[in-house]
Design a binder for these strands. Structure first.
Lengths: 157, 157
DNA sequence: GTACGAAAGGTCAGTAATGGTCAGAGCATC
DNA sequence: GATGCTCTGACCATTACTGACCTTTCGTAC
């Protein structure tokens, strides 16, 4: 329990806790140099430790003056609701399963009635039922994004 | 946020915000001199940062007394963020256009940096480039749904 | 009004400087 | 030895920036 990835993770979290805003900007190359590792390792740490399921969003730009920005969202990463979302929404989901999931989260108290209605609306947006396969994919992506958004927004305080 | 292009972009936006009308006039050569760069770099900044997707229109004239005018769009009170989303996202959208739209909304103040990063992450997630046509369609749907969701979410209180 | 030179801006290919991806090797744990 | 996490290197994609060359416009001489 002391891998290089762990050190990089700690370092980034320390960085995040030391700034007033909830985001930091780094350069992949510099960080790799500081830890004497391959640049791709930084990418590895970011995808495994700073993904959306853990409460972070990463944004980057390539090319000259490129950067990586890490945003920390407000949620407790180990909350039950996030666990459920992580497990329940795959790459593809049908309408009923999506609806059930939303209902279940509302029941758990993770989603207010208001939020549940909005998530449901977003997920059904543009669903004309003509391309079932496409719909399943879109539904999964929208569902995951909106749920994570709501869940990481509302538990901030 | 450290490249010369970024500085030139900031400078021009500052200029735009300091005038009563929504347009400014510059000379490519003077600006290049001020930033100590090649004149073509100014053109580069204009095409990448001040295009129509981001809400700007550029007009120019060559020869003696030549000039470049930059007009900012979207300042009309009736063109709110929701309208822009409905109009800009069609049935299919490429990666760059999606990114530009998110950037424009962030610039308008409709999206916070957090929310912009969030939407961007949701829209670009799972984009493996193996089925470009399908991705374009999925991207448009996810973009519209998440944008409408985030925008209506933040304006409801 | 034509010709020409000077003074703008436009275009584009090429180079450099980033970050992204992914297969596979290494290593730890069970 | 199977499984899963770490880590890397080779290769790819994107963005920044420049210089050489092109086009347009104006002013002036004739």
């Amino acid at each position: 329990m002391a891998s290089l990835s762990d050190y990089i993770e700690s370092y980034l979290k320390l960085l995040l806790s030391s700034v007033p805003d909830d985001w930091v900007e780094i350069r992949r190359r510099d960080l790799a140099e500081r830890f004497r590792c391959a640049p791709s390792q930084i990418s590895y740490v970011l995808t495994t430790r700073f993904n959306i399921e853990r409460g972070y969003v990463v944004e980057s730009r390539r090319g000259g003056g490129g950067y990586i920005r890490i945003f920390r969202l407000g949620a407790a990463p180990e909350s039950d609701a996030l666990e459920i979302v992580r497990g329940a929404v795959g790459d593809s989901i049908d309408r009923k399963a999506a609806d059930d999931l939303i209902a279940r989260l509302a029941e758990l108290g993770a989603l207010s009635a208001h939020d549940a209605a909005f998530v449901r609306a977003a997920v059904l947006e543009g669903d004309d039922g003509r391309q079932p396969e496409l719909e399943r994919i879109v539904r999964a992506r929208v569902l995951r994004a909106t749920l994570l958004f709501v869940l990481t927004q509302s538990t901030t305080e």
